[in-house]
Design a protein around this nucleic acid. Structure first.
Lengths: 117, 117
DNA sequence: CTCGATATATCGACACCCTATGTATGTGTC
DNA sequence: GACACATACATAGGGTGTCGATATATCGAG
């Protein structure tokens, strides 16, 4: 069993990071695109603010989970990110951990009143 | 459908509050007991620090979700909390919301590699 | 009587997200 | 050509919450 120690703040931060990493699974993207895709794919549930997204990108890059390279699309610069091997490993590992926590959480929370539609 | 925004911080805070409320479902308890029960019931996954628990209790009481009353067990004082109707309602409502977010999250995250044991 | 467990409470440090602001390019419109 | 708006990246400041440390007080064990 994965050790213990659950930290709400790490968990919350992890969700954002995992979403970004997950979004890069389908191919490399630049930041702005990640935000748009995540918002669309989640049906507007997850909306990344610029002030939230870029620091996360920098953090992930600093940790070597993603790799960014500048690209010039005409005169406009874009920083295109792609998953590293480490990032892919982190994504699957942390996803498993999230599920562990979620299932632990659901065990303690009351069962949802099975209200049909 | 509950649409609208998702806030990581509210979510994280909500988890703690929900766990406390859920623990009170089985009957009234005092703070210290809640922490012990939650830790035991979650198999050591969730551990509440004193500096975290008591502010939560005060917040929940201030919002009228729980009701506390002092009890003297010999000379040692305990503040025993119980769920209010409002608290019970909040618990089921927010639990539903958490599940909504969790399922949205799981849709975006990669499927767990079904690794046996 | 000293140590540790029980029981509650508060404060300062730290981390993080969010709002606002700034820079710069591309496009559409008049 | 001038202007507004979308694209695209970046950072600083404010607010909020958890965590560790500290304090008070009672009770049982050695």
């Amino acid at each position: 069993m994965t050790e213990k120690g659950f930290d709400v703040q790490d968990f919350a931060r992890g969700i954002h990071e995992l979403l970004v990493l997950s979004s890069l699974q389908t191919g490399e993207k630049h930041g702005y695109q990640i935000a748009l895709d995540l918002q669309a794919d989640s049906n507007d549930l997850f909306r990344f603010k610029h002030g939230t997204l870029y620091p996360i990108l920098h953090r992930l890059e600093g940790e070597g989970l993603i790799k960014g390279s500048w690209s010039k699309d005409g005169g406009r610069r874009k920083k295109v990110y792609s998953l590293t091997g480490k990032g892919r490993k982190h994504l699957s590992g942390e996803t498993g951990r999230v599920q562990e926590i979620v299932s632990g959480l659901m065990r303690l929370l009351p069962a949802p009143s099975e209200v049909p539609a």
